[in-house]
Amino acid sequence: MNRLLISIWTIAIVPSSLVGCTVRENTETQATNAKTGTLALVANGEDFIRQGFVSKDGWQINFDHAYVSLDRVNAYSSDPPFNPSGETQLKPTQTVSLVDKITTVDLAEGEEDAEPILVTQTDAPVGTYNALSWKLVPAQEGSTQGNSIVLKGTASKDGREINFTIGFDRELEYTCGEYVGENRKGIVLAANMAQVETTFHFDHIFGDNSLPAEDALNQEAIGFEPFASLAQNGQLKVNQSDLAKKLNSEEYAKLQQAITGLGHVGEGHCRSSSNIER
């Protein structure tokens, strides 16, 4: 009888303990999988800012500085993936805070072929960060105080040259889906770095001479001529209040719409909302 019991114990219990080991190993594997990586936030004004471009009305525009002030930048793993063109709300399963105080970035920093500007980076759980939200807010201090966007540079056309400083004080909030570009971004692997990107399309304001005049972008852009008409002695320094007074209503409405459409994630679009409408 004892022999029978020993046999049962050997055959039944030993495999069970082995199963127990396997379960423990699986648990350890899951713990390994739960490791973190690094998520970096970059800001990109694209080649329009880094290299300059010709506006829809023929002004060659070059930027010395293109400041944007960011706040409350969060990256999300959203399930289902967020569609900014739809009506559904963002449903995050994971949120990583990247910026929680007003941070001003110069998109024109670096050479013409510079990489997008690194804003910050932080530890993040492994995962796919397929949505991003951020605010454009007026800076509270420094040379751009009171403005959420400041563009400084030179515009030239037909021998005329204008040194400009244009400030916008709009406060905007963008909620975006996944970055769309040549490479995929936002996928954090254990002990690796991934990026998410705030992208600004300034051709929406000035238009793009390389595109046909009837292209939707040029139809919706204000161009540079309305700004040039406000310059005196080759100098233009205006803020949004000045523009609201001096541009005609149609031009100003176009400008407002263009500013609202600045924020992207690469080529991917964002849902935008404004707290200030003038």
Binding site: N130, G177, V180, G181, G266, E267, G268
Partner: peptide, 11 residues
């Protein structure tokens, strides 16, 4: 799907 600076992604 991307073309000439325009693109989108769908899940």
């Amino acid at each position: 799907i991307r073309q000439s600076g325009h693109g989108d992604i769908i899940s």
